[in-house]
Write a protein that binds this DNA or RNA. Structure first.
Lengths: 240, 240
DNA sequence: CGCAGATTTGACTACGCTCAAACAACGTGG
DNA sequence: CCACGTTGTTTGAGCGTAGTCAAATCTGCG
């Protein structure tokens, strides 16, 4: 059995994120069994690595609080950002086919995670069909979100990408029951630029434009969406 | 039990692709159980759809022969190509979290597939741990290949993307035991352009250049790699 | 053979990048 | 708790890669 750490240790049964996470839809007895696997790690600070490329793959991580970016490095050492993970999201699934990680998971803010040892999770999953199908669902969603990411990169202009990104984050907050028109977003503009395959300069210019057009603002980590429909139109309009 | 169709119906146990597919590493008895689920569908012709967006999700498909592209359509009706699938590859995993497909799987050539009903596959998978972990592996690889795709799109120049693509295909053929420096590639240049987020004109110009530099040729569906290392260098060099 | 669709070639263009420099925000130590 | 240095953001000017548009040519299939 894994050691339990200090911090807020709500069991899966009491966790507010249970419907987004592995636990979704499990019976209470199965939930308790899942709960026994979970290693609630102590918080890590901004800049710390949850795992690095080359690390042995051993666990999946459910984000409990904070935010994590998933990155790799290209030949010329520049960071490639594959995604941002919020509370309830799972990180690590991209490594399940391999012995070692190929990506880096980095905390962008003080972050708390539940670690689930893969071997044990897989065993339990075999015994609990619903958990197994939940695993498949989570992985399938990860595939979709990656496909969606490429779609945005290839089909949309710089303005549309940024509008899309803000709406994506807004939707995530909404689905977690938070205010979705005003929220704290502790991501550097530089990282957003990178994720959207833009430069910080371009992001800055576009945010300026969005503000002038009263669509939204993003200052000091605080996003305020002033005209959601306007943003949505902008994001979805075909270029014509 | 599902109906069996005509055509070359080698059981999983006799299938040359078993190490790439679900069957990889299974014991003979489990292989036979897997075999019972498999519905070997009749061939579909070039242009036909294996599934369409909106279709109920019911099966995963293992490509037996031929080639399939996975696509969606953006707002302005243009095709977005997410990938090409060769014999041994699995299509459909992106839909496992949903009731209905969101993508289209289209045959680019006469294509034969094994259909595996998802419900039955999931059940068997629960009973056969190794099959379950093989499922996880396949899905994890799909996540990685999608991440790799975005990486190529964002990090590489037009020439590098094309070199990368040719090498990717070459590697796929190699891993299946075929000649990897000369192979038939029944994909339209237009589709490759689309997949790499380029225009057909750009692809045409670059192929011309590659030919002039004696790196490779691609004429009438036949790819010949003349200088593999040259291509590899080109693909991997950072831009500086 | 003929036609629709695919590819090639050429001239021109645009979107977002690069480079540079000023400015703002942050967090760290004295 | 403020000063300072580091890191992040903004603004401007000019540029380059790949896209666009158009027309010629090739290919494959009925």
């Amino acid at each position: 059995m894994t050691e339990k750490h200090s911090g807020f240790n709500a069991s899966c049964a009491k966790c507010a994120l249970q419907t987004i996470c592995f636990a979704n839809g499990l019976y209470e007895t199965d939930l308790d069994r899942l709960d026994e696997l979970v290693d609630r790690l102590p918080s890590i600070s901004k800049g710390e690595y949850l795992y690095s490329a080359g690390d042995e793959f051993s666990c999946l991580y459910a984000i409990r609080a904070g935010i994590v970016k998933l990155i790799s490095f290209s030949e010329d050492e520049t960071e490639v950002i594959h995604g941002f993970y919020l509370p309830g999201d799972i990180v690590g699934m991209e490594a399940m086919a391999y012995d070692a990680h190929e990506f880096y998971a980095v905390a962008l803010d003080t972050t708390t995670v539940c670690a689930l040892p893969y071997g044990q999770l897989a065993s339990l999953s075999s015994e609990v069909p619903h958990l197994n199908s939940q695993m498949f669902s989570l992985m399938s969603r990860e595939i979709m979100s990656s496909r969606l990411h490429s779609t945005i990169l290839t089909q949309k202009t710089a303005e549309q990408r940024l509008a899309d990104f803000i709406l994506l984050m807004s939707t995530k907050y909404k689905s977690r029951g938070y205010e979705h028109r005003q929220f704290r977003l502790n991501i550097l503009h530089r990282d957003v630029a990178n994720f959207l395959n833009l430069t910080p300069e371009t992001v800055s210019r576009i945010l300026g434009k969005f503000q002038k057009e009263a669509l939204m603002t993003w200052k000091k980590k605080e996003v305020i969406i002033k005209n959601e429909n306007g943003l949505r139109e902008l994001a979805n309009d075909s270029v014509e």
